[in-house]
Computed example of a mutant assay.
Amino acid sequence: MLLGVAYRMLGRAADAEDVVQEAWLRWTSGDRSDVREPRAFLVRVTTRLALDRLRQAQARRESYVGPWLPEPVLTDFGPAAPDTAERALLVDSVSLAVLVVLESLSPLERAVFVLREAFGFPYAEIAAVLDRGEPAVRQLAGRARRHVEEGRPRYDVDPAERRELTERFLAAASGGDLGELLALLAPDARLVGDSGGKAKAPLRIIESADKVGRFLAAVAPPVRTTHVHRFAEINGAPAVVTLVDGRPDSVMQLEVLDGRVHRVYLLRNPDKLGGLAGL
């Protein structure tokens, strides 16, 4: 749970792990004699550490090269998967689209949204975590919820349909088939690429089906190259992880509505792909 809170706050798995490790060190090395509720104590420490790191990260992101996307994480829970309702809530709160919207919230709004909407904490408990009054927390929650609802894409697609469309899209992109790409893309399609300036990817968001299709067709790898594609559940949805020489090189995920691709996420920053090694 602590990793879940920290990741949704920060959008980076490595940063989330650092925060939870520091929270645990404070738990194990401090005086716990007056701690009546360990869970509440650890959530409070984790959230406050994540807030501090988030404020630092937002300052760094102002100089980030190109668009910024969250670090992708595997979310195939396997036999330990939660029930359908709980899983839907967890997946929605960790989707790339929602995490991108959360980037536009203030740190306090993001903390309140994560604790309330993703984990169902009572307002009074969130107020204690943030050392704020409950009325102020309710106002923060209302603002954050409205902002997320306004920015959240309205995509609700069966995972099997999304996987099938992803397979067709991958085949068209890999083969440089512009006609098939244009048939699959919605007219207002957008491609958001994240390289951090450390790999080849667009430094601006590409808009319109024609421009997105032509970009993907132009960058199709030569037939002689040995790219390996693996399908995986990334941030709650089907995605393609491309391996080059056995190492993750990119992640592509699609947002789909009415059988057409409305958004393409392309992650190529090597600093964000380490958690996918071993696929």
Rank of each mutant, 00 (worst) to 15 (best):
A220R: 09
L216H: 05
A13S: 14
R204C: 04
P221K: 02
L3N: 10
L105T: 13
V19T: 08
P187V: 11
V244E: 04
Y64Q: 09
N269W: 07
A111N: 01
L165I: 15
D245N: 11
R132F: 04
S195D: 12
L243A: 01
E62Q: 11
S95G: 10
G259N: 03
D83G: 05
G274C: 15
F121R: 13
G179L: 10
A239H: 04
N235R: 02
L102R: 14
E109M: 13
V264E: 00
Q56I: 06
S106A: 07
A50E: 01
S33Y: 09
E22N: 12
R247D: 07
A97I: 02
L257M: 07
H147T: 08
A141V: 13
A118T: 05
T75H: 02
H147A: 14
Q253Y: 00
P79M: 09
V219C: 02
D76H: 13
R53K: 13
D210K: 15
L273C: 01
E233I: 10
G179M: 07
R204F: 14
V219P: 03
R146K: 12
D249H: 09
A97E: 08
E125H: 02
P107F: 07
E109A: 12
F113L: 07
P67G: 05
L25R: 15
I126K: 11
A128S: 04
A201F: 08
V192Q: 03
F41A: 15
V192F: 02
E109I: 15
P79H: 05
G259D: 08
P159V: 09
V73F: 03
L105Y: 12
L203V: 11
W27Y: 12
E180M: 09
E62I: 01
G151N: 01
P67Q: 13
A217H: 06
F121T: 04
V112C: 00
G278A: 11
V112R: 03
A85F: 11
V157Q: 03
V114N: 10
L99D: 08
R87A: 15
L257K: 15
G275F: 14
V100L: 14
F119A: 00
L102P: 12
G11F: 06
V264K: 02
A13N: 05
Q56H: 11
P202L: 05
G4W: 09
L108V: 12
E255M: 10
R110Y: 07
A220E: 11
E117T: 12
L181H: 11
S33T: 12
D76F: 06
E62H: 10
I206T: 09
V98A: 05
D245H: 14
E167L: 07
T166H: 06
R55L: 06
A6M: 08
V100E: 09
R268G: 01
M9Y: 02
